[in-house]
Computed example of a mutant assay.
Amino acid sequence: MTDRQKPHWAKEMESSPFIKSRFTKEMQQQVLRKANVEKKAGAARHRRSRAPKTAAAVLIVAALGAAGLWLSGDGTSLLPSWPPDVVSSNKPAGERTQYYENGKLLFSVFPDPELKAGRPYGYLFSFQAPFEELRGKSLAIYAEHVHSGYKVTAAAPAAITEPSSGYQGLERFGVANLGLPLSGLWRYTVELDGKRYGDVTLFVPESSWELSPLFKSGSVELRGTAQNIGFIDPGFRAGAPQKAMWHVWGRDDELKGSFSVKAVKQGEERIIDVLSPLTLGGSVNGADRTAPSMVTLPEQGRWRLLPYIGDRMLDSIVVDVK
Rank of each mutant, 00 (worst) to 15 (best):
E114C: 02
V152L: 13
A238V: 09
A263K: 09
G224R: 05
V190A: 13
E95Y: 00
A63V: 04
S316C: 13
M27D: 13
D320L: 12
P181A: 14
P298D: 10
V146A: 09
K137P: 00
V220Y: 03
L79T: 06
K256E: 12
P292V: 11
K322L: 07
L185K: 00
H147W: 02
Q242R: 11
R135A: 15
S208W: 05
V86M: 01
Q227C: 01
F131M: 10
P277S: 02
A62Q: 11
V37L: 13
Q300K: 15
Y150I: 11
S207W: 02
A56W: 04
D288L: 03
G174M: 02
E269P: 00
L105E: 04
E268D: 12
A51Q: 15
K39Q: 12
L180Q: 07
L275Y: 06
T189I: 13
D320I: 01
G198I: 03
L275D: 01
R4M: 08
Y308E: 05
D112Q: 00
G118V: 03
E299A: 14
S258N: 09
L124K: 02
L275V: 09
L178A: 11
Q30R: 09
D233C: 01
I160G: 06
D311M: 13
L278T: 10
V319K: 07
V86T: 07
Q30K: 13
L222Y: 10
A140W: 10
E144Q: 15
D288N: 10
K137D: 00
E268L: 03
R47D: 14
G235T: 05
W249R: 05
S77V: 04
G179P: 08
E221G: 02
R302S: 06
H147I: 06
E26D: 08
S126D: 14
Q28R: 12
S21W: 05
E132K: 13
G166Q: 07
K137V: 00
Q29V: 05
A56F: 11
G42K: 01
H247F: 12
S126V: 00
V87A: 04
E171A: 09
A156P: 00
S276G: 03
S49N: 14
A158Y: 07
L64I: 01
H145T: 10
D199A: 14
A154I: 04
K11F: 15
F203I: 01
P92W: 06
D193P: 13
K151C: 12
T97W: 08
Y121S: 12
R196Y: 03
S108C: 10
E114H: 07
Q28D: 06
Y308P: 05
G103C: 03
L214N: 12
G310D: 08
I271D: 09
A10F: 15
M245P: 02
R22T: 13
S293R: 04
G136A: 13
L305G: 10
V200P: 08
V152P: 07
K137C: 03
G75M: 06
V146T: 11
V248D: 02
A63C: 07
P7K: 10
L211S: 02
E221Y: 12
K243G: 14
S293E: 08
F231K: 04
A57N: 10
D252L: 07
W246A: 04
E144Y: 03
D273K: 07
A41E: 11
A154W: 05
K40A: 15
P84I: 08
P234W: 03
L64Q: 11
A43R: 14
F23A: 03
V204H: 04
